[in-house]
């Protein structure tokens, strides 16, 4: 029983990533090699290391946004380990829909879709009724202190901080078992950073497993259950 509960949600083994830039004479850029990392329920592993060490690259490999050059990334999905390297696109999309959310610094704005609709979308995709989705989206937007007058508007014209809060609302409203956070608080003021830290802590209590990158010292200290030093896996090529 306890053994089953302790199964890692994310299991990265021997992960290697390098880029080959064909437009630049086939230059090969090694990012990291032989990287191992496990993340269990209720853990928030914060990636440490200077800029350019591959923190975002690691998160993108775990999300399936970047291909791996070697090793494996296993995600616990519906009680079974799925290696992203061998998974079909349909399986990866299903994992993203139901198991794994990703908050980046940037919101990819879809023209004409309202903020409220954007936040409801992940719930609707998972079969939550329209009424419940709307109620939960409203609660989430309110708790992030996004002015109600904005909710019916597409976020294209919002400020950076406002767009980021829409992005956060979209990911936290769903209560994903796994959350990947790449600088989710980068353009937020102190009060809003505090709100996001509360959301992170609440999600951890409910058993989410997280990997995070936080520039802000206070957020990092508050959110992390553990730090992961990426620098030692740095490779030349």
């Amino acid at each position: 029983m306890t053994k089953k509960l302790d199964r890692p949600m994310i299991k990265v083994e021997g992960l290697t990533k390098r880029f080959t830039l064909h437009q630049h004479g086939g230059a090969r850029i090694g990012v990291f090699g032989g990287l191992d990392l496990e993340v269990k329920k209720g853990e928030c592993v914060v990636l440490a290391g200077a800029s350019g060490m591959g923190k975002s690259t690691l998160i993108r490999c775990v999300y399936g946004n970047y291909l791996t050059s070697g090793g494996s990334v296993k995600i616990l999905h519906d009680g079974a380990e799925v290696d992203l390297a061998g998974a079909t696109p349909q399986t990866i999309l299903d994992i993203r829909r139901r198991t794994m959310g990703y908050v980046s610094q940037f919101l990819r704005v879809i023209p004409r879709v309202s903020t409220l609709q954007l936040v409801m979308e992940p719930l609707l995709e998972n079969g939550v009724s329209a009424e419940e989705a709307e109620a939960r989206a409203r609660t989430m937007l309110a708790s992030l202190k996004l002015p109600e007058a904005h909710w019916s508007l597409p976020p294209a014209t919002f400020s950076g901080g406002e767009q980021q809060r829409v992005n956060i609302a979209r990911s936290f409203v769903r209560e994903y078992p796994i959350l990947l956070l790449d600088e989710p608080t980068a353009s937020l003021d102190a009060a809003n950073r505090g709100i996001v830290v509360d959301l992170i802590k609440a999600a951890l209590t409910k058993g989410s497993a997280m990997i995070g990158i936080f520039h802000d010292e206070a957020v990092r200290a508050a959110a992390a259950t553990r730090f992961f030093e990426i620098e030692s896996y740095k490779t030349a090529a």
Partner: peptide, 18 residues
């Protein structure tokens, strides 16, 4: 071939990168 965001963000083939 691949997932849309993967092909666009981490293109592998020289032509796709171009």
């Amino acid at each position: 071939t691949g997932l849309t965001d993967q092909v666009l963000d981490d293109a592998q083939h020289p032509y796709t990168q171009l």
